[in-house]
Structure formats: structure tokens, C-alpha cells
Design a protein around this nucleic acid. Sequence first.
RNA 1: GUGACCGUAGCUCAAUCGGCAGAGCUCUGGAUUGUGGCUCCAGCGGUUGUGGGUUCAAGCCCCAUCGGUCACC
Length: 393
Amino acid sequence: MPTFSFTIDAECPASWARAGTIQTPHGTISTPIFMPVGTQASVKSVSPEELREAGAQIILANTYHLMLRPGSRLIAEFGGLHNFMHWDGPILTDSGGFQVFSLGHLRKLSEEGAAFKSHLDGSAHMLTPESVMRIESELGADIILPLDICASYPCSHEAAQEAMEMTHRWAERALVAKEQYRPEQTLFGIVQGAFEPELRRQSACYIGNLPFPGLSIGGLSVGEPKAEMWELLSAVTPELPRDKPRHLLGVGSPEDLVMGVSLGMDMFDCVLPTRVARHGCLFTRQGRVNIKASRFSAQHGPVEEGCDCYTCRNYSAAYVHHLARAEEQLYYRLGSIHNIRFMLRLASEIRASILAGTFPEFRDTFLAQYVPTSEKVREDQREKWKAARSRLS
RNA sequence: GUGACCGUAGCUCAAUCGGCAGAGCUCUGGAUUGUGGCUCCAGCGGUUGUGGGUUCAAGCCCCAUCGGUCACC
């Protein structure tokens, strides 16, 4: 019995979309899948039981954060992350590569690795491809990621190439280092290449040809325009081996999920659904809504008509609105549960449409119906501008 | 009853020698993409208690009046 396998259940002839099944030591995952993010061994405000009920199949945790607090050795003493956090399903740990990027002012990069000052107490730490393998083995996730370098946007060609090549060298070091740790863990490779399609292609080929059982696409959605992100992803997908699962790191929104599947991605993780939920933004099939908006103050129905999440089944929009405005702890839970369930139901509907051979129709219908608020805002601004101009003339 | 102090945005308060009335919160919207856990951006909102006066100019100075707080009788 292999500890990790990926099988393709169906492919969509009109796009890169496919549906698959991933086997891990802690259970199987049906793809495409959205993975809720629990950086500090907790999906903020949501319990493992609630995650299960929302349909979560696999969750993320973060090496950098857990290494600093409570420490990977302590987690190992408790039997690894699964036992420590009482989640018995699959877990993926991110390497801390993104923190190398997002906490840039606290770090120094070298061939050896990334020297850090802790954001918690200023203490000095060194992340290397080798130490990350050791820490992730102590955390004990099913899928682990190697240390990589995420270029910031925009980025010069030289810096982009340098970051990519260092990521490649670090990937090979990680493969070697992993040999001495737990064989039941699966190490994914990370494709980089910044914002140049040619570098992305090179990275996809290079990482795709190394003996990684799965691939993560890193360094996207860090400030570049959406259209650019999709273009970069379209450059990557054709170069990737068909038989390995593809994980689009740190993406995305509901519309990103649909688009990403269409471009051949199988796994998605993102803090967006839980983060925006905490600030009052909830997903519906029509687009995002701000539950704090006064129009919900007396709404008897649920946040989203027809939604099967715990929140929508049991509470009125008016109550959720009230909790959000009052900044009650329960709101964070109810809001997060709704958005997580939204993403997971969307993923499972995408999967069903791929299996049924109707994914292109599903995608087009969804995108026609779902209006990202940013577009609404642009529309509003256009209207205001039109009105202002007509007043002048 | 006497005296002192105070009345500025819905709330809490700024405004130098008299010189374009301002913040925070609330409210109305928006943002957030491998999470540094209540963040960020924008907007609405004013007859400065009221009535007079002085002045080129008054939230500010003077008079009256209403309201509040405190102290004393």
C-alpha cells in the first residue's frame, strides 16, 4: 500500500481541468479541492469537527509559525500535528518560504538559506532546505513543501532568474535531506519563475522532472494583475507532468478556484475566505456581500438562500449581521464556516461537473453569475463618472 | 439663592495672539490571496446652546438668556 498516490478520475477535453483522487496516510482527497489554512495549527475560530462538517478533506499549517511557537519538537512530543490539534485527516505544511518573502525586512538570504529574526521576540533563526525538512518531519504532515524563494512584484529579470535558480538548487537539497526522515511524508516541488512566462516554463520543466510526487505553483497572487497571473499559469500547466497533482499555492477566491481548475490546477489553499469572513465579507453565488451592511439588519432569511452550511441552516442574516457588528466571537466562527463551506461546496460541484463532462458550462455559468465586488465597484465608479459628466454638460 | 467652570458633528473632544471648523469613535461603502488575529482606504455628517453687541474678521472678546457640572450658603 503506497503512502501517497494520485489517480485521475476524469479529464475535461475542452480545458485543462481534471478530477482526481489523492491517497495519503490520513485519508483520501477528492480533487479539485480547497484546503482551509490553519497557520498556527488552527483554522482561526473553527474546530476540527466544524471543518469536517463543512466538508474539509485536508488543511494547511505553517512551518515557520509553528517552529517559533510552540516549537516543532514539542509538537513531535505530542505525536505530531494530527494528535496535537485533534485533526485526523490529511495535513499539508507550508515550508515558511512565503514568510521569507512576507517578513522580508526581518531576513537575510544566502545560498545556505534564510536567516530570520523572529517576529515574536526578535530571536535569530536560520531556515535552510535541510532544517525545514527536519522541522516538517517533526510536525508530521502528510504533504510537506520545501523551502523556496518567492519573488516580490514587480521584479527585475535578474532577480527573478536568481530566485528561481536558487529555488531549484534548494529543491534538490530538500530531496536529498528528506531521505533521512519519514518516508510516509510526501514532498511536493515548488515551481517559481516570478512574472515571466519563459522563466515559469523553465521552472515547471525543471521541478516537474525531479522526483517530486506532486507540484506546487508558488509566487503567484502577490500583487500582479489577475490577467497576468492567468497568463503565467497557462505557461506552466503544459510543462507539468500529467500524472502529478498540482497545487496552486496561496490562491484563491471563488473565481480563482474556477479559473485555476480550468487551467489544470487540482489543489488550492488560501487565507482569503477565512480572513475576509472575519472582516464581514461573505461569499454567495452572486458575489461577495458585506454582512455588516445595513441592508442585512432585519433580513429573516439566511446569509445565502440555498446554502447548506451550518450558519445558513441555523441563523438569520440579521443575527449574523448583529454578531458581526457587535464583534462577537461567535461571528468569527459563523462567518468562517460559511466561507469555508462555500469554497468546499464549489470545489465539489466543480468536481461533479468534470465527472459529468459539463465543466465548461459550469465554469461559464458560475463566472457569469459571480460578480467579484471589485468589478461592482468599478461599475459604480463608471456610473458616478458618467453622472458627473452629464451634470457638467 | 450665590459663585466658579463648561455648552463645537449622533458620541468623546481639538482649534496657538480673534484670521478658511478639525480628529477619534459611530454611521455609509470598499479592500484583503502559501494569515505578523479586530487591519487598511474612502465617504456622509456643522446656523460652534439661543438672542444681541464689539470688530475688516468672533467657536474665541462683551451683555443677556437657556441648559449642565461643581463648590458654598
